[in-house]
């Protein structure tokens, strides 16, 4: 464990808590893409299959359990409890356009052709693009609630910090996983446009509005 990865995980945790707070306090899922949340749930389910078979540390297990349960809870809140406030008309990104290419790529490009490894690789590829429905929805509605943009900033920062973690592990632990690194870079790059808007607008106290 290094500071980059720890802070990265805490950003990830903060993002998920921010999202649940937004939903619970505003009693609404307006502006949230249920599809992205379904994809994130799938990412955790396919990545943490080794939750009970491969014990790494108490921290690792606790975080995995929290990520799994919170992402499933978020999907539940969006599609059942606060369904009335779900804006399905703007959440129209086709998930199959992400699921199928990630699945095919995971079968072709992986470290080992075994079910667990392919599922882990699929989750890495899927996580890189899982935010696209949410970013697409914001581009359609042209705006995002301030707390939703904080959520996105924390979520985008987490994988950016992981890139620094991978640099650290490469130089100091001689540890390098090209699949995780390449997907992590793609994932972080997808947020760059949003990061620019967040820093120039939200941090100036303005609402996140996309230029019409």
């Amino acid at each position: 464990m290094n500071a980059f990865r720890l802070v990265g995980d805490l950003c990830h945790l903060a993002a998920i808590v921010l999202l649940l707070l937004k939903i619970w306090k505003s009693r609404s899922v307006a502006g949230l893409s249920g599809k992205s949340q379904i994809l994130f749930g799938l990412v955790f389910v396919t990545r943490y299959l080794d939750l009970v078979t491969n014990f790494v540390s108490p921290y690792n297990t606790i975080m995995k359990v929290f990520f799994l349960s919170s992402s499933i809870a978020t999907v539940y809140l969006i599609y059942t409890k606060f369904k009335a406030t779900y804006d399905g008309n703007h959440d129209t990104f086709r998930m199959e356009f992400l699921l199928i290419p990630c699945a095919l790529l995971a079968i072709v490009v992986n470290h080992e052709f075994s079910p667990m490894e392919i599922l882990w690789t699929f989750s890495i590829y899927l996580e890189a693009v899982a935010i696209l429905p949410q970013l697409f929805m914001i581009s359609k509605t042209g705006e995002a609630e301030t707390i939703t943009s904080h959520y996105l900033f924390a979520l985008g920062s987490y994988r950016g910090l992981y890139i620094m973690n991978w640099l650290y592990r490469y130089y100091y632990e001689n540890n390098f996983d090209v699949i995780a690194v390449v997907a992590g870079i793609v994932q972080t790059v997808l947020y760059c446009d949003f990061f620019y808007l967040y820093i120039t607008k939200v941090l100036q106290g303005k609402k996140l509005q996309l230029p019409a």
Binding site: H12, K64, F67, Y162, R169, E173, N174, N175, F176, D177
Partner: peptide, 10 residues
């Protein structure tokens, strides 16, 4: 040799 597995990460 480079160790590849990053399975100790979340």
């Amino acid at each position: 040799t480079l160790k590849q597995k990053s399975k100790d990460e979340l």
